[in-house]
Design a protein around this nucleic acid. Structure first.
Length: 458
RNA sequence: GUCCCCAUCGUCUAGUGGUCUAGGAUACCGCCCUUUCACGGCGGCGACACGGGUUCGAAUCCCGUUGGGGACGCCA
């Protein structure tokens, strides 16, 4: 059976890059009727795990990704890890290392500078005695030879064993470290395929050695290139929204975000739009690209507008109310309003703003527009138009069209002497949804009121 | 610095030796539609990083250069 997982460290929110990784794993599991599991990598113990899990689950719920079985917390499995560590110790595959933090710091600094470390990190590898000092447990890595594995994305990957130094598997406080517990958990949770960011490529060699030490079969690995920011570097908080839930706040539809993310590093011919079902059917980790990709907001916007256009109005209405505090559930012309707006906005946040602009009488008028369109005759036209309206009763957009046409015909004037001024009276500017729709949404009384307001101000 | 990964329009990508005067999408520009702004339709701009090979033939294979990215923790 195919079993995949998403294994974030608890940072307090779901990162946009993490969502793509989760999506890939989820798609692959669903495609193969397998399992997709969630594991929280909280061996560090320093952060609030519950808050982090809540954040991830909230984001999962929003995007529709669901995980199978219970969530696994590494912080609750220390006894299990200890057992395995002791096993390695007993077999002589791991050892106690008494190097101090200061000594280690010197080694690290030297490595980062490209210099040869002043102290051998394997100093205690063959030390037989016991010291009354704090120690960490290191894994004995082979001194020579090659370590290789077949990566599902990048092909065969090898490294000289000499480059993988004896790494820490248990800290001085006894807690186990990432590269060790990952292997134990992936094994115990029955992982068949591991799709993760290629920042883990290096770690894979260490993990391979642990698998070997226990004589376990190795799962398939797929290292997917990172998503970069628009400048081509690693995404960070400075680049704007890295928290998935920010996209909800900005008025993006989850399916738009997923569609956008699935196309970052993966493609299926020329196809751009993928329903969730299509993604599940068509996704194959073997098709993942080798090159990193950049986050491209314009494309996301385009996808979002596509999905907004194709969303039922009730859904949009609900999001507008729940996420943006714009409640038009009981507005009698809400269908017209949403139908008009969904064709033109890129986000639901934008739609909410537009609705407020329409429903709230203008507090100010665009001066340029007034200068251009509100000449003497136009003002008269407005005055006469509301007079003309008195014994009419237009309701729907076509009614309003008819009324305006009649007026224009009767007065023998061109549309531009009535329509732009009318629009300015309604919303203060010359841009916006179809005028007849706008008038219909506002209703006759409000239309007259707004015209009068404008007339009184000039 | 060392090791590793990567390299097609601004961006996301198609492309696996000949069908490529390199296709799609987005962005941008123009035209049409239209009372306006959008939407939509049509058209345009725009790329195989560079240099060597291999081959009858290279975007596709090999080598190097350059450029970008990642890793180098008692973080994950």
């Amino acid at each position: 059976m195919v079993v995949t997982r998403f294994a974030p460290s608890p940072t307090g929110y779901l990162h946009i890059g993490g969502l793509r990784t989760a999506l890939f794993n989820w798609l692959f599991a669903r495609k193969n009727n397998g399992k997709f599991r969630l594991r929280i990598e909280d061996t560090d113990l320093s952060r609030n795990k519950q808050e982090a899990v809540d954040a991830i689950i909230k984001a999962f719920n929003w995007t529709g990704l669901n995980y199978d079985d219970e969530v696994v917390f590494q912080s609750e499995r220390f006894d299990i890890y200890k057992k395995y560590i002791n096993e390695l110790l007993k077999k002589g595959l791991a050892y106690k290392c008494y190097l101090t933090k200061e000594e280690l710091e010197k080694i690290r600094e030297a490595k980062l500078k490209g210099e040869k470390p002043p102290i051998d990190i394997r100093k205690y590898r063959d030390f037989k005695g016991e010291l009354d000092k704090p120690y960490v447990i290191r894994f004995k890595t082979p001194l020579e030879g090659k370590i290789c594995f077949e990566d599902g994305v990048k092909g065969k990957q090898c490294v000289d064993a000499s480059e993988i130094e004896d790494f820490v598997i248990a800290r001085s406080d006894g807690t186990p470290t990432y590269n060790f517990v990952v292997v134990i958990d992936d094994k115990e949770m029955g992982m068949s395929d591991i799709i993760r960011g290629d920042d883990h490529l290096r770690n894979t060699f260490k993990q391979l050695l642990i698998y070997k030490a226990f004589g376990w079969d190795v799962p398939n690995f797929y290292h997917v290139p990172m998503i970069h920011n628009e400048k081509g570097a690693k995404m960070s908080k400075r680049d704007g929204a890295v928290d998935v839930m920010e996209y909800k706040k900005e008025g993006y539809l989850p399916e738009a975000l997923l569609n956008f993310l699935v196309r970052l590093g993966w493609s299926y011919g020329d196809q751009e739009i993928f329903s969730i079902e299509e993604m599940i059917n068509l996704f194959d980790p073997k098709d993942i690209n080798k090159a990193p990709s950049r986050f491209n907001k314009e494309k996301l916007d385009w996808l979002n507008s596509h999905y907004i256009k194709n969303s039922p109005n009730e859904r949009i209405e609900r999001i507008l109310r729940d996420d943006f505090g714009v409640d038009i559930v009981n507005h009698d012309k809400k269908e017209i309003l949403i139908d008009e707006l969904k064709e033109r906005v890129k986000t639901l946040k934008e739609m909410a703003r537009e609705i407020e602009k329409i429903l709230t009488p203008p507090s100010e008028y665009n001066e340029k527009a007034i200068k251009k369109f509100l000449k003497e005759d136009a003002i008269n036209n407005l005055r006469e138009f509301i007079e003309f309206l008195k014994d009419k009763d237009p309701k729907l957009p076509p009614d309003w069209h008819k009324v305006m046409d009649e007026f224009l015909k009767q007065k023998e004037i061109k549309p531009k002497f009535l329509m732009p001024p009318l629009r300015i009276a309604m919303v203060g500017d010359t841009k916006g949804i179809d005028l007849a729709a706008l008038l219909s949404v506002l209703g006759k009384e409000e239309v007259i009121k707004r015209v009068n307001t404008l007339l009184s101000k000039i």
